[in-house]
Design a binder for these strands. Structure first.
Lengths: 118, 118
DNA sequence: ACACATAGTTACCAAAAGGTAATCAGTTTC
DNA sequence: GAAACTGATTACCTTTTGGTAACTATGTGT
């Protein structure tokens, strides 16, 4: 009786593992948290605004990530019929729920960094 | 004055972006959260235990991820001089600080999934 | 006519991530 | 002495990710 089944048997634990996998699939990649973080601060942003604010991202990547997150219903894309056509991106209600997660990530990252230089 | 500099100018915001980048670098990949989550539940685990508990991982990946996290001081590796040599892995103090993050990730993933089927 | 801004798309390429399968070296059990 | 368990490592390959650069199409200002 050395082997204590800590996880694989428990339904709760399987749900947890699945939840983590889900979250990572949707939020993975180099840019999503940065885009979401920027949109959390700004509410409505145009493509070029994001391109400027999210430092280092290329239009291709921005476009792809926005499409990705639109499909996952984290953000909304709305075309505004202005003189030069503009497109506004903003978080959905679901998108805004990432806020605590982004905060936790930032907090952890900062704490980790501080710990190194202590 | 249309362009409101929301982020790039603020020192606080740059720190935040850096923190997120740091965290993602250290915790990225398919397996780290699963390994950390398992170690959060078990305290001390041997290589083969992890191989069995972290479903689907190959020894190569487990080995690599453990080395990675050991270098980043999230886990400790200690060789125990038993009959067949055993190696114990456990979280460091720094490693245990990921707990809220793992929880937040799991919570978000579950909420997201529930929202889809509502 | 020319430059510039809008919002992207496309082709091409390099690097990283991750999977499979085999192997290794030591020890213990049969 | 053969098989099995310990904790890995290695070679090889495929997929995914992400970057660069160029290009499209529309419209505005000069």
């Amino acid at each position: 009786m050395k082997k204590q089944a800590t996880c694989n048997t428990s339904t709760q634990c399987k749900k947890r593992i699945l939840a983590i996998k889900d979250a990572m699939e949707i939020l993975s990649g180099k840019w999503k948290f940065h885009i979401l973080g920027t949109l959390l601060l700004n509410e409505k942003m145009r493509f070029m605004d994001l391109l400027r604010e999210v430092e280092g991202i290329a239009p291709k990547m921005l476009s792809k990530e926005l499409q990705d997150m639109e499909m996952n219903r984290l953000i909304t894309r709305s075309v505004i019929n202005t003189k030069p056509i503009t497109v506004e991106y903003s978080l959905t209600e679901a998108g805004r729920t990432v806020e605590p997660l982004v905060n936790e990530l930032a907090t952890w990252g900062e704490a980790y960094r501080n710990e190194l230089y202590s």
